[in-house]
Design a protein around this nucleic acid. Sequence first.
RNA 1: UGGGGGAUCGUCCAACGGCAGGACACAUGGCUCUGAACCAUGGUAUCGGGGUUCGAAUCCCUGUCCCCCAGCCA
Length: 566
Amino acid sequence: MSQEETSAPGNFIRDAIEEDLRNGRFTEVHTRFPPEPNGYLHIGHAKALTIDFGMAETFGGKCNLRFDDTNPVKEDVEFVDAIKEDIHWLGFDWDDREYYASDYFGQLYEFAVRLIKKGRAYVDDLSADQIREYRGTLTEPGKDSPWRNRSVEENLALFERMKKGEFPEGACVLRAKIDMASPNINMRDPVMYRIIHNPLHHRTGSTWCIYPMYDFAHGQSDSIEGITHSLCDLAYEDHRPLYEWFIKELEIFPTRQIEFARLNLTYTILSKRYLKQLVDHGHVRGWDDPRMPTLCGMRRRGFSASAVRNFITQIGVAKNENLIDIALLEFLVREDLNKTALRVMGVLNPVKVVITNYPEGQTEFLEAVNNPEDPSAGTRPVEFSRELFIDQDDFREEPPPKYFRLAPGKEVRLRYGYIIKCVDYIKDPHTGEVTEIHCTYDPETRGGYAPDGRKVQGTIHWVSAGSAIDAEIRMYDRLFSVPDPNKPEEGKTYLDYLNPDSLTVLQHCKLEAGLENAKPGTRYQFERKGFFTVDLDSTPAKPVFNLTVPLRDSWAKIESGQKAGK
RNA sequence: UGGGGGAUCGUCCAACGGCAGGACACAUGGCUCUGAACCAUGGUAUCGGGGUUCGAAUCCCUGUCCCCCAGCCA
């Protein structure tokens, strides 16, 4: 935790836990974070895991990490290590309490046998389609399976044979015998176990060919671990009666399940399935593409863990459906990096400036502040010479009103440099592009000061052409062009809203010398432009930076206002 | 015409019968060698209708709207 984190206001889960402690329902708090190892963690998981680990922390309890690995068809070890890395990155730890639902397969099997013996579970030979038909609909009750009343002995024998692998996939399942007419569909004899011969489980291999369903694994695992509070998505609210039914019938530790609303973020999607599609179909470069809302993507983009943590505490916890403005996340990233990132000058779209009255071949070093928010960051020398690069956007042939930057006949301050005046410029006759700007400098203004007290409104960034390094800069924008791609219009899908300009790669950007050796993950502020982070692909020979988040640009607002006003 | 859940500024969250508050966003102004940061100011909210009460976002009744559930996924 690099800095003070904004403290979270109370929420209904904290209230509920306090009440449980007060009235003696529980004497301690023990939670768990239960990811399924079938994909990478995203910002939505960050919310869940912050609640899980955070609640334990605020009540002096523990939080287990438990992989919910009950479906070998979807899961893989590939994801286990990545998930652990992401949790650690956020700053949470589970000590030695790393568990797997698959650790409990033996115990779960015993639980199932217990229910069969109680006459509360049976083996059903109906096909998946038939089970669906028999289940009824939202408004009509279901009907009993013809296999519902097999004897305990027969069920025991059949379940044993399922376990031994005597049946093909789909031949039968184990079901809880509850109530096919329940208004809650989850109580209509839910499937507890199904047969899966292939693929083999990533941890238990060929030991099992029957696997428990979520409803017969998650809650039971909670009980086995002595979890007091099982905090989960609103989607499981309907499952709570079933969760509690199993606890009662099995007479096991009575964990309390409490549900909260999942996070939704504007201009992105937080569905593992959709995220996987973006990766598989090549819409992004991978799970850690900096445009992805995955934790590894955000990390690569340059978002700091403390900014993400602050974000989670700021959005709060409630049961309302929500759609958080991504501007809040961006604000918190800026807030954090503003305090910590070293400042540097980088020219994204270079145009050459020649200081005509500056001696050819001469160079000098000027002192630049590394971080005005942090005096201890010190200063650095930056090279100045006759030929410089500035950003194309900082020069206009015909400056609009209130334009404070360089234009014919106008003065501007080079940050930490000199005040210069544009005396001429050269245009490519074919493209009309300005290729070179000629200026004179005022030697009396070294360091950017105006000893005569004259007002120079604009200050722009620059780099010395002789020493500047070339870099690739990847400019990122929102992945989707609409606030809520989850709610497509008729006939469209979220893919129809992908922002075609979410990535713009800039080559031959000019940066201050020295930056070629910056290590991947290092964050800088390119003055007046934004925060940039050295990408994983970066090498000294070919430096690569990611735009983490741009600086606020009030000039852009003024200018667009001017255009709109016409 | 089943069951479960939810409605408070544009967006999130708070207020737990006692002055509806905070953050982001937006707007305006200040400051400025980053048009950044920072500072100041401003506008906008209790879903509707009844009731209880000295007093209701909060309690009761009623209506409306929104979300979730019919995987051998989690």
